[in-house]
Design a protein around this nucleic acid. Structure first.
Length: 366
DNA sequence: AATATCAACAACCGCACACGG
DNA sequence: TCCGTGTGCGGTTGTTGATAT
């Protein structure tokens, strides 16, 4: 028994929206407000599926939408957030006023993704240490991993997931073979070195909740790594470090959040990468938890030694002192190279490579 | 000028969660 | 507690326009 379709598809119009349809929909929503999408088409006199109406309204008809090209600043934010939360387009979009998840997703897939892939392919050749370390981490931590969405998809009769387990946990497995139309950023590759070993993801852990995989197969799997508050409430991006809390949507690399414990396999090179990117506070307009709230919920702990806050779920923390984000990406305008045309991707890769070499040397010296 | 190819964008589809009865 | 419905989300597909041959 499958789920009932969202609407009776017979007789419904599909495809592009005509201007008059847009007008009808807009007028109806202006008069009656959003919601009740299923019944809306009927009341508005539209031969459309309710979901289609909702999508059309959200993505194109809303008054507060910002049209036009994605600016460089917006692109920066998208790349940074994607490095942190992967394909969670709605969450990314929530930090870009006037932009929709669909728009961002399309922009990523058509613009950023390709550039980044080329870059990372170049860069990955120079990162055997990273990938090897990542593989070790992945293998060691994959044990007892969560069930993913894909297996469930293959076997739809599989048991349902508990409600307090995040949607992420019910989606794709962390490691799997799948085809992909996109690739993740070098940034993500760098930070993608471990995932929390506990079942229940916390907000804080999500920042670190990534692993290395085949870049050609990576993007689709990103969706599986999600974060939700302890009770499944709205989500928020939080940092592993609290004291430099910023206002608004500031995105700042954070310093180290603790000491490595019992991790002989990872040198300083690894340590730095581990927390290469985190955000002090990215707000969730839907009212998600902040780090402080996370603390109150016990999702983050205070590290006695360092006097800093750390995520309970993060099994490793970073020695960011050794290996800063700026070192890797070349400073504040780290994404500028990303915006360059494809011709300069070689240069970009070289930049990254140089940064890696630099850090390796530092590590050796240490 | 005609056709093929590609990129960008719009829309659809299926799944999972939230919520109320 | 269970079940059905509404909604949101992300992946995928389809369409269109631009460019190359």
């Amino acid at each position: 028994m499958g789920r009932a379709p969202c609407c009776e598809k017979v007789g419904l119009k599909k495809g592009r929206w005509a201007a008059e349809e847009d007008e009808k929909l807009a007028k109806y929503i202006q008069a009656n407000g959003e919601g009740s999408w299923r019944s809306l088409p009927k009341h508005a006199g539209l031969l459309r599926c309710g979901k289609s109406c909702r999508l059309r309204w959200i993505n194109y008809l809303r008054a507060d939408l910002k049209r036009g090209n994605i600016s460089a600043e917006e692109e920066d934010i998208i790349v940074k957030l994607h490095a942190s939360v992967s394909n969670r387009w709605s969450l990314i979009a929530s930090n870009l006023p006037g932009r929709t998840d669909n728009e961002i997703k399309n922009y990523w897939n058509s613009h950023l993704c390709r550039r980044i892939h080329s870059l990372r392919r170049s860069a990955s050749e120079s990162l055997p240490l990273i990938t090897e370390t990542a593989k070790e981490a992945m293998l060691s931590e994959e044990k007892g991993g969560r069930a993913g969405r894909f297996p469930a998809k293959k076997n739809k009769n599989s048991h349902s997931t508990p409600k307090d387990v995040t949607r992420a946990s019910t989606k794709k497995p962390l490691v799997e073979n799948s085809t992909s139309n996109c690739y993740n950023s070098s940034i993500e590759a760098i930070q993608s070195l471990h995932k929390p070993s506990i079942e229940k993801e916390t907000l804080s852990s999500a920042i670190n909740d990534t692993i290395i995989r085949d870049p050609c197969e990576e993007d689709k799997e990103q969706t599986g790594r999600r974060m939700v508050g302890s009770s499944g409430e709205k989500e928020t991006l939080v940092s592993s470090q609290s004291d430099e809390k910023t206002s608004g949507n500031s995105l700042l690399p954070c310093p180290s959040v603790g000491k490595i414990e019992n991790d002989q396999s990872s040198g300083p090179f690894y340590h730095g990468i581990d927390n290469a990117l985190c955000f002090n506070e990215v707000t969730d307009p839907n009212g998600g938890s902040t780090l402080n709230e996370e603390r109150q919920k016990g999702l983050v702990v205070h590290t006695e030694e360092s006097g800093e806050w750390d995520s309970c779920s993060s099994i490793r923390t970073s020695g960011f002192d050794y290996w800063s984000w700026d070192d890797v990406m070349g400073g504040d305008d780290m994404l500028s190279w990303l915006r360059e045309s494809d011709e300069v991707e070689g240069e970009s890769a070289q930049k990254l490579e140089e940064a890696m070499d630099h850090e390796k040397k530092n590590a050796m010296a240490a």
